[in-house]
Every structure is written in structure tokens, then in C-alpha cells.
Design a protein around this nucleic acid. Structure first.
Length: 202
DNA sequence: CCCTGATTCGC
DNA sequence: GCGAATCAGG
């Protein structure tokens, strides 16, 4: 396989999309992740950041004539991303306060590595699932590997367990079904045929 | 052990 | 230019 324009285009798109080298390699086929990484470097886009703010360190060589210097053209310093009071984070309902032992929980990364096109896990709570299935899921979750976000891979179940606002939150992490983001148990609750969830009583 | 990207270097 | 091998790390 060679790097045709089309393949390079795919590479660029996926890479700037935050896809991993191995994922890209898999998509393209006929190349390894090493090949992808190598290409990425040769293309000079190893730096996934393309910040508008040019980090240009202004080399300012020796060509400095004492009288040839710009006084103060306003420092092009990086503008501090001064977080706007835009926090639109919907506060928890007045109902009940979670035992926020640790008010800290990592903010969701810009590009979740997670599903890549897959639907994000709906919370199991509000779902209507057969008691048997639910029970088996509960059982499975006792064996959850309790992975952190960073420990997730394409082959680990990405079903979230617990409340993200507490320190008792983790991902299932059991082996995921081929091609699916979840393990067998969670696939069964995540992907329900429309038919079966049609006429639920309310 | 699973995975990630970075780098090197013979081809 | 290419990418396997290797390195360094989560």
C-alpha cells in the first residue's frame, strides 16, 4: 500500500480528529500504526495542536542593530484563556446532594477517546430493562475492572458505573464485544431493538 | 499486559 | 519517503 492522496487525506482527517495511530492504521488497512505515525511526522503534523496562538519564540538572531529595534509593539503574548463565567454546568437539582466528598472530578476531555461515533452510554437508571437482565448486569458489574478513563481501550467495556461526581465512579472495563464499545452484558442493555422498548408502560 | 506517540535508521 | 524496531510512557 502506498500513500495515495486519498489515504493521506483520511490520515489527516482522522489524526486531527484525535484518532489514534492504530485506529487510523486499522481504518486505512495495509499499514501499521508505526507507518501511520511515521507518516504523520513526515507530514509535519505530529503536533495535534494547531493553536491560533503562534508559539513563535521570536528567535531574534544577531541582526540587532541598537537603533533598529521596535520599541513596544505590544507583546504578542499568548492571551490567557481567561475562563469566562460561562459555566453553564447545570447544577444538580435541589433534590439531593451527592456525598461530594471530593468536589474534584476531572473535566471531560475535549475529545473523548471513547466511542468514536458510537452513542454514549445512556444511564441505566431510567431505562426499562427486564429484571433478569438488570440483575445479571448488576452481577457483572461486581466484576467490573473499574478502569479509569485513560485505561479504556477499544477492547474494554466503556460502560460507566457510579456517579461521576463521586470517587466511586469507574468504567466497567470488561472485554468488549468485537466492534462494540461495551461488554456483552452492557451491550444487551445499551442496544435494545426498538421493538422491545416500544410499548413500555408508564 | 494492554495501549499511546516519538525516534531512529536501514532500506 | 517509508516503516519496523525500539524507546518512553500511561
Amino acid at each position: 500500500m502506498s500513500w495515495t492522496d486519498e489515504r493521506v487525506e483520511t490520515l489527516k482527517r482522522m489524526w486531527s480528529d484525535g484518532q489514534s495511530a492504530s485506529a487510523i492504521a486499522k481504518e486505512l488497512g495495509g499499514v501499521t500504526r508505526n507507518a501511520v505515525i511515521g507518516k504523520v511526522h513526515r507530514l509535519g503534523l505530529s503536533n495535534r495542536n494547531d493553536e491560533p496562538e503562534a508559539p513563535a519564540p521570536a528567535p531574534e538572531p544577531v541582526s540587532e542593530k541598537p537603533a533598529d529595534r521596535k520599541p513596544a509593539a505590544a507583546a504578542p503574548q499568548a492571551v490567557r484563556p481567561e475562563p469566562q463565567p460561562e459555566q453553564a454546568v447545570e447544577p444538580a437539582g435541589p433534590a439531593e446532594e451527592q456525598p461530594l466528598s471530593q468536589p474534584s472530578f476531572s473535566p471531560v476531555p475535549r475529545r473523548p477517546i471513547v466511542p468514536a461515533g458510537q452513542p454514549l452510554p445512556p444511564q441505566p437508571s431510567a431505562n426499562e430493562i427486564s429484571p433478569e437482565t438488570l440483575a445479571s448486569v448488576r452481577e457483572v458489574e461486581k466484576r467490573a475492572r473499574k478502569l479509569t478513563l485513560m485505561e479504556l481501550t477499544e477492547r474494554t467495556c466503556k460502560w460507566p458505573i457510579g456517579d461521576p461526581a463521586t470517587d466511586r465512579f469507574w468504567f466497567c472495563g470488561l472485554p468488549s464485544q468485537a466492534g462494540k464499545p461495551y461488554c456483552e452484558a452492557h451491550v444487551s442493555v445499551a442496544f435494545q431493538p426498538m421493538s422491545s422498548r416500544r410499548d413500555r408502560r408508564r
